[in-house]
Structures are given as structure tokens and as C-alpha cells.
Write a protein that binds this DNA or RNA. Structure first.
Lengths: 338, 338
DNA sequence: TTGTAAGCGTTATCAT
DNA sequence: ATGATAACGCTTACAA
């Protein structure tokens, strides 16, 4: 059938053990030997069998992606980012959407990992905030990297997007446009990301001495329907806020919808902003001011960290821990009484 | 470490070969023996090692997903559908976005397949229309299933969504609303899906004796920017069409944008429709009349067909070949002069 | 620096 | 119906 390590050994006149050393970049191989073997490998187009390799070394060259996140665009970007690094290094990506609400979620993830002897997993928010999962992974010694909005793990195990800082920028943006009465639709307060975003926003408002009374803050569920409800609550009070910031684009889209129903012009009478820079954000009318995370890069970093761990023989390069999202201003925010 | 087939053999007092037979549902095992072995397996929580299994049987229990499609929502739905079946049957899903424009695309896919000894691949549109790829897969004897809009393969190898029929429904819908002057933004005419959709639409118009002159048909590239250009072309002629149908939601969103810029009210002065039922379609204002494919189910079917093939010993159940998309009517279409 | 031999956990062959 | 034994293609002791 296809060419094996034995063929290479025979053809290059060395033992298979030596071929194995060459494949695995062992330094303990004579230069001449190495070159001869590599030559034969190239000629024959040999590539080592992953399964055999895995069986012998208990590695799989498979990385897992664990998530419970309805945002398909976010996931797609993560996958493409991760794969861009995987491809170079001979790894594949196995996907595993789950539902973190089920009580067998953790054991399901562990089973996923052991089933395919994954070499490591990337965990996306909001699952990445799950302490029990991280603990379970450490327990079974499974390398993992979390993508998160808060610094809740060692640099080896996390890539953080500084969403607090990003929301400070958002606050600055609105204050500079003259807004002093602002509504905020937060995400579920059991998510760290929701807490971070709100905290960053409030902190920066304080700098400008802009107050945001508690009745201007309503808690949504990060989905469209809850966004509608929250928007109605905020827009049916008088005086109305002149701006509403939502914890994500999905809920910001809901604000636009409610404003439209109530004949409130955006941004003339109401500024609206979201978070994510979804496809929605650029397509909806008016297009949405929002915040964009460097998701692709975060995924690249995650894979690099993961592979760094597997190759503990090599010299490890320290990889960046934090990345910075940036504000994207579009049509939905404008001057007060603009 | 973890429990192996040897442990099961020892504990249940049979040979490992017999355990293997039980695992693989071989009929050649006595009932009593089978039950005893299964009992032990359950007690110990044993699950066979995929890599060892693969090495011995040259199977991997891995399915691949090949695509070159920017629609993250479509892909996400496919992944979830495929995994819902994979999970039951002990398979995993490995993702592989590629760029079909590159001339090494096919060899890249083949390498992807052989690298991980995939048991089969699902191919999404528009890559699924690639004849050369399908031929190459048959050549190397790799089971595949294509998701497509046209019946271009055996029932074993394809799941077809009848988009021609769906677009007939769309035509009917518009004619019933009184539209007789309709613009059409097609997709690239080298895609069968684009051809099908346009053909279905035109065929049904003919039934109602509604003409659609060639200058009412412009070819877009299925992306937002091309949609903007096409929409401008159609809307800057007088008299304007009273309805515009686009080959996908992305371009339909562009039509809404241009209409907005030109102060054309939708649907009062212009009806707009798309195809896909993207998240966009329900969020944009006005929400978009569009066509929804049963993508999740298509993916389920694809995986079932794929696994059917691997298990050629078992009795094969004939699986559905064609599925029917359905029209979703929303705010963007309305009566003429409504 | 290189080679020998023993696994890794399954399935496949061929007996019985 | 069941079992002994040899693959499968590679890595990892352990030698030399």
C-alpha cells in the first residue's frame, strides 16, 4: 500500500529507529545520515502514520475545540485561526459544541478528550470561564488554553482579550459625543465577560463624572429576545436615555428594532452600540458601532501555546497573554441632539 | 492506565478475540458469552482505543468536513447537524476550510484525508459542485457525500436541496403580491446553485406569464459589495422594478442598504427577498423574506450515508436523497403600491 | 551515533 | 462458537 518507515529504513540503509529519530528531529543523528534519510523521505513522499504514531507514543496530533456559544461567526473565525496554525504543524482540529448547562457536560468533555486521545483543547467563552472544567482538565493532565475576557489562569493556559479596556473606549466615545444619560443592557451577571464589560464602561464614565443610575442598567441574556425586552424597558421611560450600549451585537440589533417600532431615529435621537462586530453589525441599518476582538489571532495564539506544551523537549517561546479589542465606530452612534 | 481489551478478556474469561467480536457486533458469538462480556465492559467503562483500532483496521472513526464557504452560519449548522449523528455512532468531525481557487486545492484535500485516514468526508457547496474533487475521491476510494442544490451524483453520495422548487415558490409569492416588474440579482453563473435558483424563479414566472427581461437580471458574486453594485444598477433605472430578489441574504441586505440610501421604502415601494435565512434575515430592518434549507437535517443525512458506506457488512437503509427548502415570508415583501 | 527488541491496543488469519 | 498468533506502523527502553 503506502510507504512506511520500514521502506525508508531499507532504502536508506539504516534502522527504522534511526528513521524515527530523523522524523522526530532528534539531535542524536549524524548529519550525513540525516540528510540521506530526508532525501529518501522526500523522494518517496513518506509521511508517518498518525495512528501508529499515536498508538506508540500516546499522542494523536488532534486538538479539540470545546464551546457552547451560539455565535457562529465567532466560532468560524476561531476555527480558521486555529487551523491556520494547525496546518503548519501537522495537527488537525476536532470540534465539539456542547451544552454547558447539562450536568454531564464536564464528563462529556472528558470523554471527548479521551475518546480521541486529544493532545489538547481550546475552550471558548463562556465555557472558558468554567472553573470546574479547567480543574478537571488539569486533573487528567490535558493541556488546554482558554479564550476569555478575564485573566483567570496562567499565561500558558489562557489568551485574554481586555474587554474592560475596550468598554472604557466605548464610554469615552459616547461621552465625547455628548451623552450623559446612557442606558446599558448587560449580559448575564454570572458571566465574567458581562461583569468586565459593564465594569469597564462604568469605570470610564466615572472618570468623566457621568452617572449611570441603577435603573439605567438592565440585565439581558445575550440573545435577541431578551434584548427586545430590555430595550423596551429602557425606551419606555421618560426622559429616555440618549444612548444605549448592549453587551453584544445581537441585543444591540434588538435595540434598533425597538427604536424602529417606537419611531425613534437612530442615531439622531438615540445612539446604539454593541459588542462583537458580528456580520450583523456592518449590515444592519444603521450600521452598528461595536467592539471587535482579534479572534483569529487569539485562536492562533491558543494553538501555539497548546503545541508548545506537547513539545516540552523544545525550547518554549513565551507567548503573548493579552490582546486588545478595538472600537469600531459606525452609523448607530452620533452627537446628542445631532 | 486505562482499561484495555486484555483486561476485559481476562475478567470475563474469554479470549481477546472474542471480546473484539462483541465490540464489533459480530454475530458469531454465543448469547451467554456476549452478555457476560458486555456486562464486564459496562462495569469497567471500557471503550476501545480508536488509534489501535484504526491501526489494525485502517479506519479512523474520523469524518472530515470540506468547505470553502464564507457563510459561517451555514457551516455552524452543518457542524452541529453532523455531530448530532457522529456522537451517537462514535465518530468525530475534523474540519477543513480550504480555498478552492488555489490550484493545489484538490491535492490539499487528498492530503487532509490521508493524513488522518479519514473514513469519509462531507463536502459543502460550492465546493460540492467540483467534479474534479469528486472524481479524485472516487479514485482513492474515499467515501464522500456532497451537499448540493442539483442532483449531480448517486443517491449514496449526495443530499440535494431542491432550490429550483424553492425559487418557484418565491416567484409565486411575489406574483401573488402583484409584482410584474421584478429585478433579479443572481449568483455567479459558474455555480450550479445560482443557475438553479434563477431557473426555478424564471420558470414559475413564465407560468404566470410574467416576463423578466435580461436587463432585469444582473450577476452578483454572492457578497455584500457586489450586492451593492447590482442593487444600484437595478434601482437607478426608470421605471424601477417593484421587487428585487437576490441569490442570497447577504446581497439582499445590500439591496436594503441601497434602497435606504435612495430613500426607497421597503416594502412599500420595493419588495426585497433573499436566500439562506441567515441570522441577518431576521434581524435586519425590515426583516427579510427568504428561503430556508433544512441544513441541519441535510448534515445528519450526510453523516448517516457516510457511515452506511463504512459498514458495508450491515444491511444498508436507503436514505433520502432530496430535501425541500421552504419560503419564509417576512416584512421585506409586500403588495405592489401597498 | 546507531541498532535490537519489545511493546502500544486493536483487528485479521487461520485454526479448532 | 472460540482462541492462539501474527500483523498494523510507529516509539521507547536498552544496548552497543
Amino acid at each position: 500500500m503506502s510507504v512506511t518507515i520500514n521502506d525508508i529504513a531499507r532504502l536508506s540503509g539504516v534502522s527504522k529507529r534511526t528513521v524515527s529519530r530523523v522524523i522526530n528531529c532528534s539531535p542524536a543523528v549524524g548529519k550525513a545520515t540525516r540528510e540521506r534519510v530526508l532525501e529518501i523521505i522526500k523522494e518517496t513522499g513518506f509521511s508517518p502514520d498518525k495512528q501508529a504514531r499515536g498508538l506508540a507514543s500516546s499522542r494523536s496530533y488532534l486538538l479539540g475545540l470545546i464551546y457552547d456559544n451560539p455565535d457562529a461567526l465567532y466560532i468560524d473565525e476561531v476555527q480558521r485561526g486555529a487551523l491556520s496554525v494547525c496546518a503548519e504543524l501537522g495537527y488537525e482540529l476536532v470540534v465539539h459544541p456542547g451544552s454547558s448547562k447539562r450536568d454531564d457536560f464536564i464528563s462529556d468533555c472528558l470523554s471527548f478528550i479521551s475518546r480521541s486521545k486529544l493532545d489538547g483543547v481550546i475552550i471558548l467563552p463562556p465555557v472558558s470561564e468554567n472553573k470546574a472544567l479547567a480543574a478537571a482538565l488539569r486533573e487528567i493532565n490535558c493541556p488546554y488554553v482558554r479564550l476569555a475576557s478575564v485573566d483567570l489562569d496562567d499565561a500558558d493556559n489562557i489568551v485574554v482579550s481586555d474587554e474592560r479596556a475596550a468598554m472604557r473606549d466605548m464610554a469615552t466615545h459616547l461621552v465625547e459625543l455628548g451623552h450623559t444619560d446612557i442606558g446599558f443592557i448587560s449580559g448575564p451577571q454570572h458571566y465574567r465577560s458581562s461583569i468586565e464589560r459593564l465594569a469597564g464602561f462604568l469605570a470610564e464614565l466615572q472618570v468623566y463624572n457621568v452617572k449611570l443610575p441603577t435603573d439605567r442598567i438592565v440585565e439581558g441574556k445575550n440573545n435577541y429576545d431578551s434584548g427586545l425586552a430590555c430595550a423596551e424597558q429602557l425606551l419606555n421611560t421618560l426622559p429616555r436615555p440618549t444612548a444605549i450600549v448592549a453587551n453584544n451585537d445581537e441585543m444591540a440589533a434588538a435595540v434598533l428594532r425597538v427604536a424602529n417600532n417606537l419611531n425613534i431615529r437612530v442615531p439622531d435621537e438615540l445612539s446604539v452600540a454593541g459588542f462583537d462586530d458580528n456580520i450583523l453589525a456592518s449590515r444592519i441599518i444603521p450600521s452598528l458601532t461595536t467592539i471587535r476582538r482579534p479572534v483569529f489571532n487569539m485562536a492562533c495564539l491558543a494553538v501555539q501555546k497548546l503545541i508548545n506544551k506537547s513539545r516540552n523537549n523544545q525550547e518554549k517561546l513565551a507567548l503573548q497573554k493579552t490582546v486588545t479589542p478595538n472600537l469600531v465606530t459606525r452609523e448607530s452612534t452620533g452627537r446628542v441632539n445631532g
